[in-house]
């Protein structure tokens, strides 16, 4: 995919910036978590753009955030399932 740069990002309006970041994040996350990628991308987009840009340059920080998001999502889904079961 086309690389995303900080200058490309900062020249776009704020809503467009999230869209650009999402388009960049989604295929990366899909490779690891195909079923959860849309949700995980949504969670990561709540992070500040400057931090997302850092993650763009540092895959290790991206994967650690993805791991955190997956854990949060699974805990959330387990809680929802437990609430439904009651």
């Amino acid at each position: 995919q086309e690389p995303l740069t900080a200058s490309m990002l900062t020249s776009a309006p704020p809503q467009e910036q999230k869209q650009m970041l999402g388009k960049w994040l989604l295929p990366l996350i899909q490779a690891m978590h195909p079923a959860l990628a849309g949700k995980i991308t949504g969670m990561l987009l709540e992070i500040d753009n400057s931090e997302l840009l850092h993650m763009l340059e540092c895959p290790q920080s991206l994967w650690s955030k993805v791991d955190e998001a997956v854990a949060m999502l699974q805990a959330h889904q387990a809680k929802e399932a437990a609430q439904k079961a009651v």
């Binding site: 849309g38 949700k39 949504g42 987009l45």
Partner: peptide, 26 residues
């Protein structure tokens, strides 16, 4: 608690403008 967070987190779709948490109905 009424468990209103059932739609969390918002899901990203490449063709849909991102609205973040605003797209979750309370």
């Amino acid at each position: 608690s009424n468990g209103s967070s059932i739609n969390w987190p918002p899901e990203f779709h490449p063709g849909v403008p991102w609205k973040g948490l605003q797209n979750i109905d309370p």
